[in-house]
Write a protein that binds this DNA or RNA. Structure first.
Lengths: 203, 203
DNA sequence: GTCTATACATCGATAGAC
DNA sequence: GTCTATCGATGTATAGAC
């Protein structure tokens, strides 16, 4: 996909390290100029290379976006994995939603790449998409712990989360206007689930 | 902003008509290649002009995006204005949300330009933004009719609508997976409002 | 208003030497 | 792997004829 793997482990390690540096610098550039406005010449300069040399690490600009997509999703997994354990699955869900809204608010272009289809021609590769699915599975787990499993209920939940994050990013980039609504949104959602099919427990 | 208005009404009319044609063709191009991938040379070809002649209608590419932004918002206002009247403000709200989700699903790039900040450097002009505010006012009116007025409650509502539309566009572009959830989402929302501050009436 | 012609800077991408 | 050199295409803009 990107380039034939170098022969020795040493070389391979160096190669991957440099690749990571390039991706990190690409995020910086994207934050400054916009995601679609990343210039490969600028990027190369910032990592001590000439523009054509980038092609030793990425087959194309879209391949760079793909690496950023995978990277952003790994950050997402790391972030939600670091959340403290909770006995109460409802509270755990509130924590999750608040954290996701903060995560998006913290980096507009990251949110843009991960959750919006905005770069013409870009579609995540199978490998990168697998990382995204891994995150989705974590969310699904938390929902299941709160007693939510119906497909339609899951869709409603993703809509709520995506709505909070999107509004936060679009209308209050630095702030917490929609972060503060996370708890209420989760309570509203769980009440709706409960209303539809009352569970036996409610401790 | 764009070009000094032609002297006579006849000329002005022609000018505006051609401008509208260009904008319409720009939408077609955006749907085919992506919003950020519109080429002014392509666009000029499609309206029977040479590329420099486009500058008789738009000062820059960003000015073209601005015209598209205003155009899309006018379509939005037209769409929600065409909704049938309703005695029940709750039902009117359901209709509105369903229609908004359908509207977004019907044209991904239009949704992208209207509701996501995706084009580097683009920011709506004051005039274009006024059209967007006009639409927002309509929505606010409908909400007020349903007894919703608190700022936080409005924010929660915009999050729900933006979530439904975004998920519909991103994960089921041609379909109605989230359109079908609109009614449930509105009922969930109104129940939450009612729970917070029970109203005197409930007819 | 529209054209031809032209200019400039920038861009992603490739060829080929080392 | 990295370089130089170069390609074709792009957006932007202007001059000047008609």
């Amino acid at each position: 996909m990107t380039t034939p793997a170098p022969p020795t482990d040493r070389r391979r390690e160096r190669h991957l390290a440099k690749r990571a540096t390039i991706v990190a610098e690409a995020w910086t550039l994207a934050r400054r100029d916009g995601l679609a406005a990343i210039s490969l010449r600028d990027l190369a300069d910032r990592v001590g290379l000439r523009q054509p040399s980038l092609y030793a690490y990425f087959d194309s600009k879209l391949a760079l976006y793909d690496a950023m997509f995978a990277d952003g999703n790994r950050q997402l997994i790391e972030t939600v994995s670091a959340l403290p354990e909770h006995d109460d699955p409802h509270e755990a869900l509130v924590d999750l939603v608040e954290e996701l809204t903060r995560f998006s608010a913290a980096d507009t272009v990251r949110h843009q790449l991960l959750f919006q289809r905005t770069i013409p021609g870009f579609e995540p590769s199978e490998q990168s998409y697998a990382v995204a699915r891994e995150f989705y599975a974590i969310g699904q787990e938390r929902l299941a712990a709160a007693g939510v499993g119906e497909p339609g209920d899951l869709d409603l939940f993703t809509a709520i989360v995506s709505g909070l994050t999107h509004q936060q990013v679009a209308n209050d980039p630095g702030g917490d206007r929609w972060v503060r609504l996370s708890r209420q949104a989760v309570e509203m959602y769980l009440a709706q689930i409960e209303r539809k099919s009352p569970a036996q427990q409610s401790n």
